[in-house]
Design a protein around this nucleic acid. Sequence first.
DNA 1: TTTCTTTGTGCACATTCTTGCATGATATGC
DNA 2: GCATATCATGCAAGAATGTGCACAAAGAAA
Lengths: 252, 252
Amino acid sequence: MLTEERHQFIRDRLAAEGKVLAGELASRFGVSEDTVRRDLRELAKAGQLRRVYGGAVASAPFAASTISQRGSHAVEEKMRLARAAVGVLAAGQTLFIDGGTTNEAIARAIPRDIELTVATNSLGVASALADLPLVELIMLGGRYIRDLGTCVGGDTLAAVAQLGADLFFLGSCGLDASRGVTAFDSAEAEVKRAMARNSAGIVIAATNDKLATAAPYRVAAADAIRHLVVERTAPAAILADFERQGAEIHVA
Amino acid sequence: MLTEERHQFIRDRLAAEGKVLAGELASRFGVSEDTVRRDLRELAKAGQLRRVYGGAVASAPFAASTISQRGSHAVEEKMRLARAAVGVLAAGQTLFIDGGTTNEAIARAIPRDIELTVATNSLGVASALADLPLVELIMLGGRYIRDLGTCVGGDTLAAVAQLGADLFFLGSCGLDASRGVTAFDSAEAEVKRAMARNSAGIVIAATNDKLATAAPYRVAAADAIRHLVVERTAPAAILADFERQGAEIHVA
DNA sequence: TTTCTTTGTGCACATTCTTGCATGATATGC
DNA sequence: GCATATCATGCAAGAATGTGCACAAAGAAA
């Protein structure tokens, strides 16, 4: 990876999120934090960002507008969840990743230097993974549903049926200890079920607003969840319910 | 391989990807890295690129952001081609669109108010179409090839086989009146052939640098081209050859 | 044809750039 | 104040680069 590319990525990220973290960039790029710090130093010298402890933020003129516009609380929280979620990955694994903004954040958080095989029906996830050199990306085709950002339908199901994965990153709509994982859409639920069936373990990263809610279509039982990634502020009682059913809880 | 050919390839690659790697070019051209560096030095002196450690990137004014979006100075020309190309569309049609920066430009040029069904194996095209409300988008899944930006392989072929289209927007690598349409990659060519087989007509939008060139793998004969969209400056003699074989010429 | 010149190419060597690690300094959170 | 995380600096190894030189191919001149 060219130095210039890292700089460009940092500029883009700053424009989009308003800030970057040194450690996160390092794992994303697959270089040491020293190198990232050198990059940040250079960019700071060129006035393209302002260094802060732990990373950097967009330089003054842009800071106000960009951060307030895009760096909403939810984005922030999802990135934190994403960083914790990628912690369960091991090199060489095969993954299913379905749609949703949280899963897209996870895809963006996957470091550059880990070798994975990923099958996804989400355009957003695929785009995020498209330039990771060590990720073998399999696009699960089908009818694209605009509201979901994913492909569903018979073709998608057929493609999923041909694959097997170690982990399935399930973008849940509702998550309840008794009712399990649920989705709003029938076709969407069907694809998720197929992915769950063909995976050894399910990983769910859920913001607080998903906890203890349910949608019409059942995707999986609560005891099928192997890893549950939640915010620091998630209600302990709810987490205990999931833990009792075998989920490993990861606090972001 | 002529020096000038290498220079042209480097310019093209830079326009398409925004960067080139010295080592990669050397193995691609079958010459030593020294020679590539000499090429890069010359092009840099002519202001056509900016050298960086490890290769070169598109020169300053377009020091762009994401891989897919930018096409350097050729972007203007491609947009013009794209606007002309969408002129052949009629409401209600079904299309195949494969990969390439020109096809991505075409996808972005499709107006919001036209109803279409589009099947594509290109992530870039799919992303461009994802938010067009009247476009029914079918993603053709498969193994994603980073260099091409498209999905290829058996799954892709199977998905194509189930569909039929009115028009196929073929992203050509080489285009020659006698040798027909050709591609650089075997798997890529296979998918293109399948799409051509299942379409009533082929549409090609080609910048001048594609005309009268050929790549190893044959995709379709020249007389299979129904619409050929070219720049205003395209050599008339070449166009006449295609016209004789039944192509309708559209000048952007 | 032979010879000379020009051009393009590859190789060897010295130089420069980049990167990761070690060390000590500084900032942050409790 | 202390433990921890983050940072700057110096250094060494490896990668990329520039330069000089030799060699081969193509064309011009004899």
